[in-house]
């Protein structure tokens, strides 16, 4: 599975690496990597010693990892461990105090935040659809106001996205008329419409009734298989096993362990990882 993954990445990464090669020259780690491993190796996302605190409460204590194009990283960890905060640092919904984050070799701190967010989509736990707009309008709003698309073009593109999440028939429904699962799928379509290079998911199924979780995970699996680069906070271990290229266990603002999902499930290096995964599985079996 990982072979096939790096194989497909080769072809697509070349152009990106050369395109951003000049911009990356000020960050010696990124250019060094590119030099050693050839054209294909620039990670889409590089997080370097990320540190973040709220007041005097330190939330992230030095997080570093790379994410290649088409990778799906699943992040797990106890409540309050900093998972949401980490995602929100990536698209700068919150500012961080230490370290650096690079998108395609370019420091996110150097980017206009609106431009950054156009390139990095986000799907929220509490969905946050625009309540006064139809499903279609939820998707077109960004296209019209951010991308400056015309009404008809935006509509067409939005319909394609709704179709992708299986909701074309609900285009004219308002959020209050949709089920939780349908709402979250509109949320995904809204993010997809901006053609993001990276999609962030913050516990996208945690607020849903259990019987609605499946339809959302299915859409996410399709995206993963279609080559979307994703950073997913979720405790749906079935999804992690099937779709993740890598699994990360976060605790108290640090990465405790990171590796292929099979490795963390079957042969974790740390007791804490084993314990946490054990608890997750028993809970989901009890439910």
């Amino acid at each position: 599975m990982s072979d096939q993954h790096s194989g497909t990445a080769d072809g697509t990464d070349t152009s990106a690496a050369t395109a951003s090669g000049t911009e990356a020259s000020d960050t010696d780690t990124a250019s060094a990597d590119a030099a050693t491993a050839g054209a294909a190796s620039q990670p889409l996302l590089r997080v370097e010693d990320l540190q973040k605190s709220y007041g005097d409460e330190t939330v992230l204590r030095g997080i570093s990892f790379d994410l290649d194009k088409r990778d799906v990283e699943v992040i797990i960890g106890p409540s309050g461990s900093g998972k949401s905060t980490m995602l929100r640092c990536v698209n700068r919904l919150t500012e961080f105090q230490g370290g650096a984050i690079y998108l395609d070799g370019e420091s996110v701190m150097a980017m206009n935040d609106n431009d950054l967010r156009r390139r990095v989509g986000m799907v929220f736990q509490d969905i946050n659809l625009f309540a006064h707009l139809t499903a279609l309008q939820n998707v077109t709003l960004g296209l019209r106001k951010v991308r400056g698309m015309g009404k008809e073009a935006a509509r067409e593109k939005a319909m394609d996205q709704l179709d992708r999440v299986g909701l074309a028939s609900q285009a004219d429904s308002y959020p209050a008329e949709l089920s939780g699962g349908q709402k979250q799928r509109v949320g995904i379509a809204r993010a997809l419409a901006m053609d993001p290079e990276l999609l962030l998911f913050d516990e996208p199924t945690s607020a849903l009734d259990p019987e609605l979780v499946g339809e959302v995970l299915e859409v996410m699996r399709d995206l993963a298989e279609g080559g979307m680069t994703m950073l997913v906070v979720t405790h749906e271990m079935g999804f992690a096993r099937r779709a993740a290229s890598s699994l990360m266990f976060l605790d108290e603002g640090r990465i405790v362990e990171r590796g292929p999902p099979e490795q963390l499930f079957d042969d974790p290096e740390h007791d804490r990882t084993a314990e946490f995964l054990q608890r997750l599985t028993t809970i989901s079996e009890e439910v």
């Binding site: 609106n114 989509g121 946050n128 659809l129 625009f130 419409a193």
Partner: peptide
């Protein structure tokens, strides 16, 4: 959250 969602697609 709706404001954050708006920001997350690149709206000011």
């Amino acid at each position: 959250g709706q404001m954050e969602a708006a920001r997350s697609v690149g709206m000011s």
